Simulated scan of single mutants.
Amino acid sequence: MSDILHHMITTGPRPVAPFSHAVETNGLVFVTGQMPTDPDAPDAPLPEGIEAQTRRVMDNLKIVLGGIGLRLEHIVMARIYLTQFERDYAAFNAIWPGYFEAGKLPARTTVGVTALAVGALVEIDLVVRRPG
């Protein structure tokens, strides 16, 4: 049995609750759901709209993954949470594929939820596999 590593990325988004940015074991990395907060201005208002919030969440995920030597291409599974599912699902889907190589999208589940921390419209968590 391998060790469990708990990762906190110093340049990453400030956690909105007590958690590690990512936890790694046996080549799998579980990345905590990221919010559309600005790591450089964590108390700033959230970006307006699902498009801007999705981009900010993806940027935050890239920061967390980069902090442990991984990239978006290493994602195996993503869970997406939307507070306005009916309204925002299509707009989210228009942005999501642009972060991945054509034909190489991770597995994904998207659910509608009643609320997210900090009043966010979107949150994304990941399961990532470390290559090698």
Score class of each variant (00 low, 15 high):
22 A>Y: 00
89 Y>H: 14
21 H>R: 04
98 G>R: 12
105 L>A: 09
33 G>V: 02
91 A>F: 04
88 D>L: 02
67 G>R: 03
38 D>F: 01
87 R>T: 10
12 G>H: 02
132 G>K: 03
17 A>C: 10
28 L>V: 13
31 V>G: 02
77 M>Y: 15
8 M>P: 00
18 P>K: 05
81 Y>R: 15
74 H>G: 07
20 S>L: 02
69 G>L: 13
76 V>S: 05
32 T>E: 10
101 E>T: 07
2 S>N: 11
79 R>P: 06
22 A>F: 01
38 D>C: 06
90 A>S: 04
75 I>A: 12
19 F>N: 10
114 T>A: 10
132 G>V: 08
55 R>I: 06
24 E>Q: 12
64 V>Y: 08
107 A>H: 09
28 L>P: 03
116 L>S: 09
27 G>T: 07
54 T>M: 07
131 P>R: 03
120 A>P: 11
40 D>R: 11
13 P>A: 13
13 P>E: 05
113 V>H: 10
45 P>H: 06
119 G>V: 12
97 P>L: 01
60 N>F: 13
48 E>K: 14
35 M>H: 04
129 R>W: 09
53 Q>R: 12
131 P>F: 05
50 I>S: 00
69 G>Y: 14
39 P>A: 03
15 P>Y: 00
18 P>E: 09
17 A>W: 11
